[in-house]
Write a protein that binds this DNA or RNA. Sequence first.
DNA 1: ATCGAGATTACA
DNA 2: GTAATCTCGATC
Length: 223
Amino acid sequence: MTDRPRHSRRPPAGAARELPNLRTLPRSFYERAVLEVARDLLGMMLVRDLPRGRRLVGRIVEVEAYDGRRDLACHASKGRTKRTDPMFGEAGRAYVYFVYGMHCCLNVVTGPVDYPAAVLLRAVEPVEGWRWLAARSSEPARIASGPGRVTRAFRVGLSLNRADLCGGGPLRITRGKPVPPRLIARGRRVGVDYAGAWASKPWRFGVRGHPALSRPFGSGRRT
DNA sequence: ATCGAGATTACA
DNA sequence: GTAATCTCGATC
């Protein structure tokens, strides 16, 4: 790996209070090719601060990469619009969009400014603060498996669109234990069958065999 | 002003 | 397999 991410959060000078042992990923982590960022996000921690000092932490176990205007599965293939604008902006910020009249999806913007690319967070494994999360009937309980469930569990709505994940905001991603390549499953992205050849790019990544994966991984081929 | 589609989820 | 549900983007 070329550029080992350094920790952006340094000990605040005076205020010794609420010093997280969690190290926020620096912007440089996101200022790379989206496929690398996607892979490297596996194992990292999604952190959400809620009112009343509550905090949710979850380990990212499944993601998808969307890469630029040429990628017909990427929203930015439609051009720069009000909706897709965040993807053209600064890396390390959230791109949140609303779909199917009921779900929000959370993405992390990557790459240089003006190059629209992002990583969709599809599944997260609970680590901290999840006791209240009402699991659905037959589920293994307490997982956020699927992009709509991730945002629901983490209370991520459109108000967090463009939120900076590298700063001290209510939503951030911190350093976790990276997942070694041999434990990473790849496959085609979900729900993008309309994208022609781009639909079969193996740009979905997940922790192999993890129970929180939103769907089984098929055989990914092609670049 | 109206219309159609969608990076999904839950349930019959 | 399909209903639910709404924002955005395109079209009239």
